[in-house]
Amino acid sequence: MKERNLTCIVCPRGCALTVRFDGAGKITSVEGNACKRGVVYAEKECTHPERTVTSTVRTEGGAVVAVKTATTVPKEKVFAVMKEINAARAPRSVSIGDVIIENVAGTGVAVVATANI
């Protein structure tokens, strides 16, 4: 039986999780989580890990505006997402929630503004 130790990143509590697998690599148990979200996180982290990316985009006015991926994106795409974010330009005036990139790095996820400028 195989085991993997993870730190849950869903909330500031940061539970220490122990994930056990059977011979075929299927998860048999998750322990150490204080809530249900820990199990969901552990399952994702062991199959297709995902992260939220936060960064900034340069505006036409020359300032920068804070942005994030609207949901998590596959972890292996994080640097591809960053590359598109750094190539993007936002309008001079932006409000929280405005879509800056519609489908970033082919993930189907939008990059949205997180500040007003």
Partner: peptide, 25 residues
């Protein structure tokens, strides 16, 4: 918070994960 652009704010207060500028806003 205006410069803390990462996510992870507001889980207790708003029940959703916000970035610093969103929480401040």
């Amino acid at each position: 918070l205006r410069q803390c652009i990462h996510n992870g704010f507001g889980l207790h207060r708003f029940g959703e994960e916000l970035t610093g500028p969103e929480y401040a806003a």
